[in-house]
Design a protein around this nucleic acid. Structure first.
Length: 679
DNA sequence: TTCCAGACGTTTTTT
DNA sequence: ACGTCTGGAA
């Protein structure tokens, strides 16, 4: 098999002999993703039908990249219909079998924000406000409920782990949750967790389970260390006929415990799948020895870890570098200078990435990059499809697709003048009773004069799209824009032009899709992030540097990697440290970040971070100091400054300036700040 | 019932 | 600094 020539013996072994149940335990950069792609290519070349292969990944990006590589390897234009995230696969199958579990197949998919507003309402409805005992915020309730479902633990236990102080309120919380579940069911909607839960429920019907278990002759799961118990159960059901599953993972890279990822899935794999084979990949093909030594040293501080020392095959003599900057702006300047130098030297932008713990940490750098016209891809934070105006437009479409989608109705109606929460509920009540398409009729009797105007306003948009829902989706969006939403944007926002541009981008995205229902789900399940500062014309095929959260960077690699804001409270994140086993997970996260780098690794942090408690804080300019992770690092693993002590000396010098900055901030900034303050 | 201004607390990570 | 919540006016 000549496509396997690129692989080393261990990898080849897993690819060729990965029949039955196997677990590929693989360190960072050891090519575990390759095992999946090459195995799939190998299976296809053996004549296996793509329909019979199931590949589950964590991110859409991972799925996409795999599909591309497989295509390249096989040279065949074979589309893999069942390669995607757990949620995608679940959606695809639930769509066909929705009726079996009591949904209609045009069900809506709610994102987190939708879920949050639903919880808000449910708390209002179910918890008397007069009571003096505090009730957890909608956010907290949602989190607890989501964790409960993904972990398959009883609520009681989850409260013990995640919210001890709410234990006395358990029955109240349960009441709110029941309300939430009812509301979703009534509006024919599923949240992210429903996709998995309902999928599992569906697979509990033996005939359905058998159909898919028979169909999926080969199952491949990526990043198995990040699966939770719910997902593991799904995998178990799906593999129950052929028992032919290949899971790859690395316990050192488990970073999703907040989503109930359970390391036990890997540790207990041999028990779950009796007779499972274990393959180990311990050679790292990605990073230089210099980078790997740092990674090994970092992860060595974790106790709950399988000890493994990754070996590498190449040296660069470039040790990871470390820099203290005065403040985030100075740090941004430093990073920019470094990037610029590399680009000028002819390095490809796509070999450079800047990573950070939390999406908010990138602001200063973004300002700096935009100012110098450096284009970048951004991964993390608010997704393109979660921006308010995009969600507004999508809400009209959601109603069109699923008239019961109350979350969408609320969103659309609440921004009409004169319609508030009470008005919305009245309208919703009327809609529940009335037969489809008679929407026009309602309103006159139930709404006040002021609300009537808002309702009429809505009807104008509605009547422009509702008679012909078969139009291409882009056409529908255009009509929404022309019938009033465009005007609303102009009235409401100074940057309405940008927003209209976004909506046009949504239209071009919609051109690939001919099914409204699928389009809407796709958009909600997609992790599509924004591309900053890129003129539309060359949006595609343009090579850009990447700014990304560490979570989003998992599985990816670059020659040069920066990790910024390595400050106390920033990384490890202060909130995360309060979780059970929080510190160890943060350290694994740091390990993931380090091992993204192939040749160059540059760590930095701002002495005066302006970050209090790891978030961007306005109160008090804090001098937060270095991350404890930096202090754990042996000085001789880093290049400049030659030792950590030297950088502490830098910091002392910096401190004098910092006082100066803090005291004078309201007046003319110091010379080194002037240029950035201009913005 | 809605709307607005001022008070409040709050942002980790993702599907 | 920012978004969300609350209380009182319209």
């Amino acid at each position: 098999m000549d496509i396997l020539n690129d692989l080393n013996e261990q990898q080849k072994d897993a690819v060729v002999n990965g029949d039955g149940s196997c677990l590929v335990l693989a360190g960072a950069g050891s090519g575990k993703t390759r095992v999946i792609t090459y195995r799939t290519a190998y299976l296809l070349s053996q004549g296996i039908n793509p329909e019979n292969i199931l590949i589950m990944t964590f991110t859409n990006k991972a799925a996409r990249e795999m599909a591309e590589r497989i295509q390249k390897l096989t040279g065949m234009d074979k589309y893999l219909p069942y390669a995607g995230t757990f949620h995608h696969i679940a959606y695809k199958i639930l769509k066909k079998y929705a009726e079996v579990i009591g949904y209609k197949n045009n069900f809506s998919v709610l994102d987190q924000e939708d879920g949050l507003s639903l919880f808000k309402i449910c708390i209002k409805e179910n918890i008397p406000t007069s009571e003096d005992k505090k009730f957890p915020s909608p956010r907290v309730v949602r989190e607890i409920w989501s964790y409960t479902r993904n972990s398959l633990l009883p609520l009681e236990e989850v409260l013990e782990i995640k919210g001890e102080r709410w234990i006395p309120l358990q029955s109240d919380i349960e009441r709110v949750i029941r309300g939430y579940e009812n509301k979703k069911k009534e509006s024919n909607s599923m949240d992210f967790d429903d996709l998995l839960t309902n999928f599992l429920q569906l697979l509990c019907y033996d005939d359905v389970r058998l159909k898919f278990a028979k169909q999926f002759q080969y199952i491949l799961v990526d990043e198995y260390q990040d699966t939770n118990r719910l997902q593991a159960k799904i995998v178990k059901k799906l593999s129950s006929y052929h028992n032919n599953i290949l899971a790859v993972g690395d316990d050192a890279q488990s970073i999703y415990s907040f989503r109930a990822a359970d390391i036990q899935n890997i540790l207990g794999f041999e028990k779950d799948f009796s007779g499972a084979k274990i393959f180990k990949l311990e050679t790292n093909y990605r990073s230089s020895q210099e980078i790997l030594s740092l990674a090994n040293a970092v992860i060595d501080n974790n106790h709950r870890q399988y000890k493994k020392q990754l070996k590498t095959i190449f040296h660069t003599d470039i040790k990871p570098e470390f820099k203290v900057a005065l403040d985030p702006k100075a740090e941004a300047k430093f990073i920019f200078d470094k990037i610029k130098a590399r680009l000028d030297a002819g390095k490809s932008p796509k070999e450079i990435a800047v990573l950070f713990r939390a999406a908010t940490h990138s602001q200063s750098l973004e300002v700096e990059l935009v100012r110098h016209g450096i284009e970048y891809d951004y991964r993390g934070g608010v997704r393109f499809f979660e921006r308010a105006h995009i969600k507004d437009v999508l809400s009209y479409l959601k109603i069109l697709n699923n008239i019961s989608d109350e979350a969408a109705w609320r969103r659309v109606l609440l921004k009409e003048d004169g319609i508030g929460p009470v008005g919305v509920e009245k309208i919703l009540l009327a809609i529940r009773q009335i037969e489809k398409n008679n929407i026009q009729e309602i309103g006159f009797q139930i709404l006040s004069g002021k609300a009537q105007i808002g309702w009429q306003n809505f009807l104008r948009v509605w009547s422009s799209i509702s008679p012909e829902p078969i139009l291409p989706i882009a056409e529908l969006i255009k009509k929404i824009l022309n019938a009033g939403y465009g005007e609303y944007l102009e009235n409401e926002y100074i940057d309405s032009r940008d927003r209209v541009e976004d909506i046009k981008q949504l239209m071009s995205f919609a051109e690939n899709s001919d099914n409204l229902s699928d389009f809407l789900a796709e958009v909600t399940l997609s992790e599509n992030y924004r591309t900053a500062n890129a003129p539309d014309a060359n949006r595609q095929n343009k090579e850009r540097i990447v700014l990304s959260t560490v979570h989003q960077a998992k599985g990816l690699e670059w020659e040069t990697v920066f990790i910024i804001n390595m400050s106390a409270g920033g990384f490890p994140n202060e909130r995360a440290m309060r979780e059970v086993e929080g510190l160890e997970e943060e350290r694994r996260l740091f390990y993931v970040a380090i091992t993204r780098a192939k040749k160059e690794l540059i760590l930095s942090y701002p002495a005066d971070s302006g970050f209090a408690q790891g978030g961007r804080g306005g109160w008090g300019e804090t001098v937060s100091g270095p991350s404890m992770f930096l202090e754990e690092i042996d000085a001789d693993l880093l290049s400049t400054p030659p030792s950590f002590l030297a950088s502490l000396a830098d910091l002392d010098d910096a401190n004098e300036d910092i006082h100066y900055i803090s005291e004078n901030r309201k007046f003319k900034p110091g010379s080194f700040l002037r240029e950035v303050e201009d913005l």
